[in-house]
Design a protein around this nucleic acid. Structure first.
Lengths: 138, 138
DNA sequence: GGCTATGAATAAGC
DNA sequence: GCTTATTCATAGCC
């Protein structure tokens, strides 16, 4: 769309990339929101500008939020690691700490779920064992 | 766009939601890919159809893949949990175990990074301490 | 899932 | 960022 047809290949000029990104980011964020609302659908979109700034849209399921946050943090971390130039070590340590905290919280959550499931399974088995004999449940 | 202007609100007919999703999914996936290629940008898009099938596009940075996979698994898990009807407990336990393993691996990775940073920081300090006195570095 | 009329997104240019 | 000529995505149909 636009005055001329544009070939979809990497724009070599960095300035052009940033400019194009600024415009199209708005469009795709709108599309994501429309799709999520119209179709009542779980959706997550994360993008990083050429300079590394993340933009996020998460539709409907708010549980996706936490995962997407982690996605953003991890990717920023990866980017800075690859641009490893200055010793902003304290800042990086703080970010790692945040990531670690997030992961520990997620682990706690998952292990709690596991415990619940195991307990529930045991209860099901004892109920089944105490039932009068009938057709075996498959 | 289209024959009439469409208001952006949840389509009440489930059949219409699925149909609309099928069409717009193609459009937004194309947009995501174009943006990622044109602007050479890291991007992740995950959607779940009304019936729960995930569609994914990840552009450029393949490290996002692992996180997006986890995003998909976790969201499927959440969905099935909310549709809690049949005791397919074993299956759920297996999924939780996969998630736990992923998280543990991520934690190991992050803690290793932390150790490296701390050691590096200590080395920087001892180098600095052994330098001749000059202007303090701020 | 394919077909058009139409509304939207956006390429160039300011 | 704002405007406008164009191309693109898609609503309603089948």
């Amino acid at each position: 769309m636009g005055r001329k047809k544009l070939l979809i290949k990497r724009l070599e000029c960095a300035k052009a990339r940033q400019s194009k990104y600024s415009k199209r980011k708005i469009g795709i964020l709108k599309k994501a929101k429309e799709l999520s609302v119209l179709c009542d659908v779980d959706l997550a979109l994360v993008m990083f500008s050429p300079s590394g700034t993340p933009s996020v849209y998460v539709g409907k399921d708010k549980d996706l939020h936490r995962v997407v946050e982690r996605l953003s943090i991890m990717s920023i971390e990866d980017r800075e690691e690859s641009e490893w130039k200055n010793p902003h070590t304290i800042n990086d340590l703080a970010k790692l700490q945040i990531m670690e905290d997030h992961l520990v919280a997620s682990l706690d959550c998952i292990r709690a779920k596991k415990r619940d499931l195991i307990i529930q399974e045991q209860q099901n088995q004892s109920i089944q064992a105490s039932l009068p004999q009938g057709e075996p449940i498959i």
